[in-house]
């Protein structure tokens, strides 16, 4: 590149972005590796080695976060892929209420997460909530959705899917619409039915959409905090505590070193799971 272009595309353009991004995001990320190994009051710190990490792995109120985070991410991601795909196929077929249905499915994506969380936690109230009173009038006694340790995490995951499925659907709609018409024509000549259309054309050729949904939903699920916190605050007990909510609890309790160690663990957790996943998915992508 010659001198004129170097001067024209000067790195001064990057300066404002670099200042903000480096100071507010990159610097704290690097610092977290150090402060995760300290006892920290924000004013001063004592180096304690890997003590915080040991605590995190040994104490059952903390290490339950790994299991819950993983379950939560897998469940929400899986359901979003399945429902997103089905809705995507349905909403690209020849139906008259297409625009209405697309809007309705997408709308919850734009509602504030905390409002959704609060509204659903009253709907899921064991005795007074609308869900259980409706079930009771049908003669079914509904479970304590958010109070039962066995299903609380799944209840929250369900609300997450309710709110997020519109996002997955929109990506699938874009993916399915970009499949060239010729494939369908070829199928028609060969006499395939609508099952063949789904299984042999739409499913393999909407692969880029599937990959995008899996990656985004999975990473989002691993980092999830804002829908879970107003609904259960990690309870009952620690049954719905994920790594992100544990970080917040330790931060509130003033254990800044431990909270930072939690952040490092979340960082490693996301990297270890998300990078190989995205490599694997991208390798299997086919070109149209």
């Amino acid at each position: 590149m010659n001198k004129v272009w170097k001067r024209t595309y000067t790195y001064y353009f990057l300066l404002p972005a670099a200042i903000i991004y480096l100071i507010i995001f990159i610097l704290p990320t690097f610092m977290s590796f150090f402060f995760g190994m300290t006892r920290w009051t924000l004013q001063d710190w004592t180096y304690i080695g890997l003590e915080n990490f040991k605590t995190f792995f040994q104490e059952s109120s903390l290490n339950i976060g790994f299991k819950n985070t993983f379950i939560y991410a897998v469940v929400t991601c899986g359901l979003k892929v399945v429902f997103g795909l089905l809705l995507g196929v349905f909403l690209t077929s020849k139906i008259r209420t297409k625009n209405y249905l697309r809007s309705v499915v997408f709308f919850p994506t734009l509602v504030s997460t905390i409002a959704v969380g609060i509204a659903f936690s009253t709907l899921m109230h064991p005795t007074e909530g609308l869900i259980n009173t409706t079930l009771a009038s049908l003669g079914i006694s509904g479970p304590d959705w958010l109070g039962d340790t066995r299903i609380a995490l799944l209840s929250v995951a369900f609300v997450d899917v309710w709110k997020g499925v519109g996002f997955a659907t929109v990506i699938y709609i874009a993916g399915i619409m970009s499949i060239p018409e010729e494939y369908y024509e070829a199928l028609q000549i060969d006499g395939g039915n609508s099952w063949h259309k789904f299984w042999n054309i739409i499913l393999p050729l909407s692969r880029p959409a599937t990959n995008a949904v899996i990656i985004l939903a999975f990473i989002g699920g691993l980092r999830s905090f804002d829908i879970l916190w107003p609904m259960t605050r990690g309870g009952p007990g620690f049954a719905t505590d994920v790594i992100a909510s544990i970080i917040y609890k330790q931060y509130q309790a003033g254990f800044y070193g431990l909270a930072t160690a939690g952040n490092v663990i979340l960082f490693l957790f996301v990297s270890v799971l998300a990078f190989p996943l995205s490599l694997y998915l991208n390798r299997r992508e086919v070109d149209l």
Binding site: I24, F25, P28, L42, T260, N263, V270, S271
Partner: peptide, 23 residues
């Protein structure tokens, strides 16, 4: 530059160190 930007899409922000920097 691209690497650091892409990393920002995946990495969760380190909260307490950010508070420390802001402070």
């Amino acid at each position: 530059i691209s690497f650091f930007v892409l990393a920002g899409l995946i990495i969760p922000p380190a909260i307490v160190p950010t508070i420390w920097v802001l402070k």
